[in-house]
């Protein structure tokens, strides 16, 4: 079975952190991801925007090595996915909270830290403070509000200090103040060299990302930063830009 440790950080490949080529994933007759080519350089925040069922989660699962592509390829940090050893350097926050409801905040966090191979108590305490759950360590999950669970779920995805992070709708149910703090933290991570891929169907989060990928029916509708996309669509906000690029007539157009 080998030692299976993560690839050393010293030999970082010069290429992009994440790259896909002709990526397709078909479920029965439906192509959830239908030919996506992206190339994400490291140390930036990428936003996957699109309506429910547009293929965001499938795309993230393909990139995180949790699904096998029907055709095409995904490369993360120079390694072709899926790759089990590379998962030590990837953080993945699932759309459902994925927490053990009988266990406490601290027990959940230390379990996932142990699973990712880095049960570092300092890192655990730090990340709990970031998500503002430091004073609720002993609380069982059953007694947490929806927003608190979301925050703990995020902490579990970041506790092993991953190099590449996939966050599937991380701010759903999180109040505006904490949302602001979380994006602040994402920015700090990116500045330190972490690559973040954040999916959302809330368009106003798009401007916090360095680059946006608008997705609809498993295809890339537009790519670029918020300003570029607005200019491309000729609209004032991302919401209208998305609707216009999708071919939906909007009130914003006629006014």
């Amino acid at each position: 079975m080998g030692t299976g440790g993560p690839a050393g950080p010293a030999t970082e490949p010069a290429g992009p952190a994440i790259e896909t080529h002709g990526l397709r994933k078909v479920f029965g007759a439906i192509a959830a991801v239908d030919g996506i080519d992206i190339s994400f350089p490291a140390g930036r925040i990428y936003g996957l925007l699109g309506p429910n069922g547009s293929g965001k989660t499938t795309l993230i699962r393909l990139m995180a090595g949790l699904a096998v592509a029907t055709s095409g390829s995904v490369t993360v940090l120079g390694t072709r996915m899926p790759s089990r050893p590379l998962l030590a350097r990837i953080g993945y926050m699932t759309q459902s909270d994925g927490l053990y409801s009988e266990l406490s905040v601290w027990e959940n966090l230390s379990f996932f830290a142990a699973m990712s191979g880095q049960p570092d108590v300092t890192a655990m305490a730090e990340i709990l403070d970031v998500v503002e759950l430091g004073d609720r360590r002993g609380r069982p999950i059953l007694q947490l509000s929806g927003g608190m669970r979301r925050r703990l779920s995020l902490a579990c995805a970041l506790v092993h200090r991953p190099t590449v992070v996939f966050l599937d709708e991380p701010t759903v149910g999180v109040d505006p103040v904490l949302r602001y703090h979380l994006w602040d933290h994402f920015r700090r991570l990116a500045t330190a060299g972490t690559t973040l891929v954040v999916s959302s169907h809330v368009m106003d989060e798009g401007d916090r990302c360095d680059e946006l990928v608008l997705i609809r029916s498993g295809r890339v509708l537009a790519m670029g930063n918020g300003a570029e996309i607005r200019r491309q669509a000729g609209t004032a906000d991302l919401e209208s830009a998305f609707l216009k690029l999708s071919g939906v007539p909007t009130r914003g157009d006629s006014q």
């Binding site: 079975m1 299976g4 993560p6 995180a64 090595g65 949790l66 089990r84 050893p85 590379l86 998962l87 030590a88 990837i90 993945y92 699932t94 759309q95 459902s96 909270d97 994925g98 927490l99 053990y100 409801s101 996932f112 699973m115 990712s116 191979g117 579990c156």
Partner: peptide, 16 residues
């Protein structure tokens, strides 16, 4: 069903 297996499998854990 609770998503914990998905999360578990996103770590380098082995099936064994």
């Amino acid at each position: 069903t609770g998503g914990t297996l998905e999360r578990l499998l996103a770590t380098p854990v082995r099936r064994s």
